[in-house]
Simulated scan of single mutants.
Amino acid sequence: MSAKFHQPYQPLLLRILHALIGLFTIGAIITAFWTYDVFDGRWGTISLPKFTEIEGIHGTFGVWTLLIFPLFAIYAFHRGQRRLIQPDSFKNLTKFGEPMWWYSLHRLVNTLSILAVTFAVCSGKMMDEKWLPQGELNHSWYYAHLISWLILVICLALHVLMSIKVGSVPLILSMINLRFRSKDSPGLWQENFYSWRSNFNMVIVKQWLSSLSLLKVIEIFVFIAIISALVASVIKEIS
């Protein structure tokens, strides 16, 4: 008799944003290594085909990641904040091997993954697309982008491993399940957005800022970095 797994429910919007950011990020990671292999290769190479257009493809994945990431970050820091670092996370990390230790580690990895994507898109947008084709490999932002690639690969691997450890097969399947509840219907998204916008005011912002937590500080940092990357992107397009 086949085993039955209780599959947790994941909000539809989370599944869509998670799938998009995952797809574009993985595409950026793969094309980033190919770009390095073609134009650099100082720390090792696997001799991939000399496809010089790969840098443009990598840039396209980077742009789409930057466009989707703010929406994903907003969801993650608010509707999905229980999946991120909590006030008692570091305390729970001292309880090695216990279930709460694994859950806290999972939340920490999720938070670090968001920071890793932030670092990657920001450092990428600070680069000039002419550097690598012209053999200019010693720019600080290029080194930062290389480091961000390594950090992102590690965080992605840890994110997958921790998801398997904490939620096993049911958690993985819940992220690709196509079914959704009536309250998650896309037909309600516009109404929910208008309701949120009508209730949003500076009083709410002041109340939110009145009690800063580590997660709120991280959120502020992430959005300042995202805005900086978007501004840098616009400036490069204009100039």
Rank of each mutant, 00 (worst) to 15 (best):
Q134V: 00
L112Q: 08
S174V: 02
S210D: 14
V217D: 02
A229G: 02
V205Q: 11
Q81R: 15
F72A: 12
S239Q: 11
M162E: 07
I218N: 00
I29K: 01
T31E: 01
R179G: 09
T45P: 03
I226K: 05
S198V: 06
T60G: 11
R197L: 15
L158N: 04
I224K: 10
L230C: 12
V117D: 00
L188H: 13
L20V: 07
A232G: 04
R181L: 13
Y36E: 00
I235T: 03
Y142R: 13
F24A: 07
A232Q: 14
F180G: 09
A32I: 04
S195N: 14
I235H: 06
V169Y: 10
G44P: 03
G187N: 01
M202F: 13
I172R: 07
G80P: 10
S2L: 10
Y103C: 02
T25M: 14
I151F: 11
K91P: 02
F221N: 05
A232W: 13
I85N: 06
W131C: 00
L152H: 05
W34P: 10
S104D: 08
Y143C: 02
N92R: 13
S228Y: 15
L23K: 00
H145W: 10
P70R: 14
D128N: 10
K216V: 10
I238Q: 03
K216Q: 09
H18T: 01
S228I: 13
F39K: 02
Y142N: 06
K206A: 12
I154A: 10
S113H: 09
G59P: 01
N199R: 15
Q81Y: 13
P8T: 08
G27K: 05
G56Y: 08
I54S: 02
C155P: 00
A157I: 13
W189A: 03
L171W: 06
V166R: 02
P99F: 09
P99T: 07
S123G: 03
